[in-house]
Amino acid sequence: MILVTGVTGAVGREVARLLAAAGPVRALARRPERVPVTERAVDVVQGDYDDRDSLDRALRGVRAAFLVTNSPTEPHDARFATAAREAGVRHLVKLSMAAVAEPDADDLLVRVQRRNEQAIRESGPAWTLLRARTFMSNTLRWAGTIRSEGVVRALYGTSPVACVDPRDIAEVAVRVLTEPGHEGKAYSLSGPEGISAAEQTAQLSEVLGRPLRFEELTREQARAELLRRHPEPVAEAFLRSAERQRAGAKAHVLPTVPALTGRAARPFRAWARDHADAFA
């Protein structure tokens, strides 16, 4: 049995869906009613990283697990890894971030993920790390202003990032979970091109068949917007990450997705076409 966490997110739900095509899979969710995966082979169980009893129940009989965490303060990776080791899980596959491997990256979220990776590596079971660049699905945060105003607003809109389709991350994860030879490895994943927010806006405009306008945010405007959604330390981490993007640190295209899947990574235009309804 394989356990998938993060199934309400863009990557976890796709991992569960792909695994379900080959047989039964278990999905851990704090709120099972919010899980969008409908395949009958997916057994959704209620659980929380802060509830050891629920982790023990979810991990019973599991041989491998896909781990997604997002808390900047709680040691959820360490808690899950301890429970997994004691349950006899043999392989942990962790979704991490590409910046972990980049020496010039040192914001709060990067430091947290470095500690999380260390907890996984030291936990006992075999491990594989998937270090993903920015998700293409992050552009869904523009959907509201696209629908209401025909506008995309972002910071440093001409700086490119080699963003990656969550479906490509999921396909890599499934291969790593089901094929031998990936233990003890860390894979950094990107999309096939560096693309800026302004260029993404233009491509969304073409896909939707309606004019869209890009508006550059000032740093203070971006900070105010982030503070409406995140605590100040997390907002500052995102701003520091944006400065690295402005400097070109996120534009590098990596060959990992084609090497592991045998096909080209999906471009942003393909992701936008397949998710056009979200912006319509």
Rank of each mutant, 00 (worst) to 15 (best):
F66Y: 15
D104F: 11
R111V: 08
G248V: 08
A224G: 09
G61D: 10
A186Y: 03
D43C: 09
R17M: 06
Q113M: 15
T38M: 05
P211L: 13
L260C: 09
V4I: 00
A21E: 15
S71I: 06
L130W: 09
M97Q: 13
A197H: 15
S190C: 05
L226E: 03
W127N: 07
V110H: 04
T134D: 09
H76D: 13
Y187D: 00
S96W: 01
A270M: 10
V257I: 15
A270R: 14
A105M: 11
V89R: 11
R31P: 03
A242I: 04
K94F: 14
L208V: 14
G262D: 08
T69Y: 01
V44D: 07
A84D: 04
A132C: 14
E102N: 10
R85M: 02
F279A: 03
D48F: 02
T139C: 08
A242C: 07
R141M: 11
P267A: 10
E179I: 07
R147C: 02
N70V: 07
R269W: 00
L95W: 00
R263P: 07
E220P: 00
S96H: 05
T218G: 14
A280H: 12
E183W: 02
G194S: 10
A58E: 08
V100E: 01
W271G: 02
H91G: 08
W142C: 05
G12E: 01
L108F: 08
A22H: 12
G262R: 04
T158L: 12
W271C: 01
D50H: 08
A119C: 13
T38F: 02
S190I: 07
A81Q: 04
L208T: 09
A270E: 15
R90V: 12
L239E: 06
A270D: 15
P233S: 03
R219P: 01
R210W: 05
A242D: 15
T158I: 01
A272M: 12
A10H: 09
G6P: 02
S148G: 07
F135R: 01
A237R: 01
D104K: 11
A105D: 07
S54H: 01
A264D: 15
R114S: 03
T128P: 10
P180R: 09
D77T: 13
A237Q: 04
T201C: 13
